[in-house]
Amino acid sequence: MTTPDPAWFERDPLELAPLLLGGVLRRADASGAVALRLTEVEAYRGSDDPGAHTFRGKTARNATMFGPGGHVYCYFTYGMHHAVNIVAGPEGSGWGVLVRAGEVVEGYELARDRRHIRRTTVITGELARGPGNVAQALGATLADNGAAFAAPAPGHRVGPRVTAGHRVGPQARIEMTPTWSFEPAPAPPPHRTGPRVGVSGPGGDASAYPWRFWIPGEPSVSAYRPATQRRR
């Protein structure tokens, strides 16, 4: 899998977002690897975008978005789930692209098992439809925030490693730093654009911010839902 140079990601998110469609986002850890062919993303444009986490400037939570492109911005939202973003633009811009949906093309069983953890019924259909399901299928958590995309080394084998100084056996301590990679599609597929899902206030204006990009006809793509006011 060939991950582009970090400079490839240092674009305006409105330019980067459609280039991500059809590409393969992959995360590997000690449990194995899961890869998604991206089918739906949303662009967020920093101080120019009232829907962006970075609209009001840099904080401890969103600091990764102000770093250079080619990194993962992962956050926890609504006290319920994580979300995965790809940092865009040059350092200091606060730009990024939210991964909204994808088709599982590697590690289907692992993704399915991760999605089953908080359910009592078997999942049928798409495993990575919606940002929370994307993160859960990939196994992404806040520990992944700030991870850089890198191509697996030649001969790379997904699986656990034994910490130095520990014997292989029942007492061995297994560790593996998660690795992320992204391979663009040879040619970005045709796409459509429209309003972002669940963005409230001015950033949810469908005519001013039609910054959701998706591949038409893909079953993993979300159904559009406008934002609703949350009760306090």
Rank of each mutant, 00 (worst) to 15 (best):
166 H>C: 11
9 F>G: 01
2 T>Y: 12
230 R>L: 09
102 G>H: 02
197 V>T: 15
213 F>D: 04
181 S>Q: 08
1 M>P: 15
88 A>N: 12
77 T>L: 13
143 A>T: 11
24 V>Q: 14
202 P>M: 13
120 T>H: 11
52 A>W: 04
91 E>L: 01
41 V>L: 04
133 N>H: 14
212 R>G: 01
167 R>D: 11
103 E>L: 04
176 M>C: 13
55 F>E: 02
58 K>D: 07
60 A>Q: 06
40 E>I: 04
204 G>Y: 06
52 A>P: 07
171 Q>G: 08
122 V>R: 12
123 I>P: 15
26 R>Q: 12
33 A>T: 00
178 P>E: 09
81 H>D: 05
179 T>M: 08
211 W>Y: 10
21 L>P: 01
91 E>F: 08
41 V>C: 01
67 G>S: 13
227 A>M: 11
143 A>D: 06
162 V>F: 04
164 A>N: 06
110 L>S: 13
92 G>W: 09
1 M>Q: 12
117 I>L: 10
142 L>M: 04
121 T>F: 13
223 A>M: 15
127 L>Q: 08
66 F>Q: 05
221 V>N: 08
80 M>V: 14
27 R>C: 00
173 R>T: 09
34 V>L: 03
169 G>Y: 02
115 R>C: 15
28 A>Q: 14
120 T>K: 14
99 V>G: 01
187 A>I: 10
91 E>A: 15
